[in-house]
């Protein structure tokens, strides 16, 4: 998840209290964060959570040591905020059991856009799996970076990916049988 040199410079300037750089930085990262948050919690509440995330990013930016990691760091803040929001709304469709997920094999074949769109909109998909899908397929992050953003082992990322695909297959099979 490489960020541009320009973005890294905005980070450094914003850390030196340059308000214009901070604004440019927030504007550059805002669309990706909104897409990610909307994918996790739905479009209705996405703007409220996004605003909280942008405020947190602005306040904590001073403490970011490596400007090149800005996007991963911002996505981590967004993940925490989105999951916190989901918890307060009690919208977890099913509790995620990591032990069960770790037993599921990782997928070998890449996922098509059509399948991905359907999966991201599927209510059967847990927020944990959806986060992995949005970051990996929508934001084009390698799995290692997804693991860093979500603060989970890479094995768990693969498991959640596989769990999501399994959920989609089950859903498609149910649709066909109807």
């Amino acid at each position: 998840m490489a960020i541009s040199i320009q973005e890294a410079q905005w980070v450094l300037r914003a850390q030196c209290d340059d308000r214009e750089a901070l604004e440019l930085l927030l504007r550059s990262v805002q669309p990706s964060l909104r897409r990610y948050i909307a994918g996790l919690i739905g479009a209705d509440d996405a703007d409220d959570v996004l605003q909280d995330v942008l405020v947190l990013v602005s306040r904590k930016l001073y403490w970011l040591e490596v400007p090149e990691l800005f996007r991963a760091w911002a996505f981590r803040i967004a993940s925490r905020a989105a999951f916190r929001h989901l918890k307060t709304r009690k919208r977890w469709s099913a509790p995620l059991d990591d032990a069960v997920l770790d037993e599921v094999a990782a997928p070998d074949a890449p996922v098509s856009d059509e399948v991905l769109r359907e999966l991201l909109n599927s209510p059967a998909l847990s927020p944990a799996s959806r986060a992995v899908f949005v970051l990996h397929f929508q934001e084009d992050m390698p799995l290692a970076h997804v693991a860093e953003v979500l603060e989970i082992p890479i094995g768990t990322v693969k498991s959640r990916l596989a769990f999501g695909l399994k959920a989609l297959r089950r859903q498609l099979a149910d649709k066909r049988s109807l």
């Binding site: 308000r19 901070l22 604004e23 927030l26 504007r27 805002q30 909104r34 703007d47 996004l50 605003q51 942008l54 405020v55 602005s58 306040r59």
Partner: peptide, 9 residues
């Protein structure tokens, strides 16, 4: 959203 966030900050 950016404007409100900056204002809050």
């Amino acid at each position: 959203s950016v404007h409100f966030a900056l204002k809050k900050v």
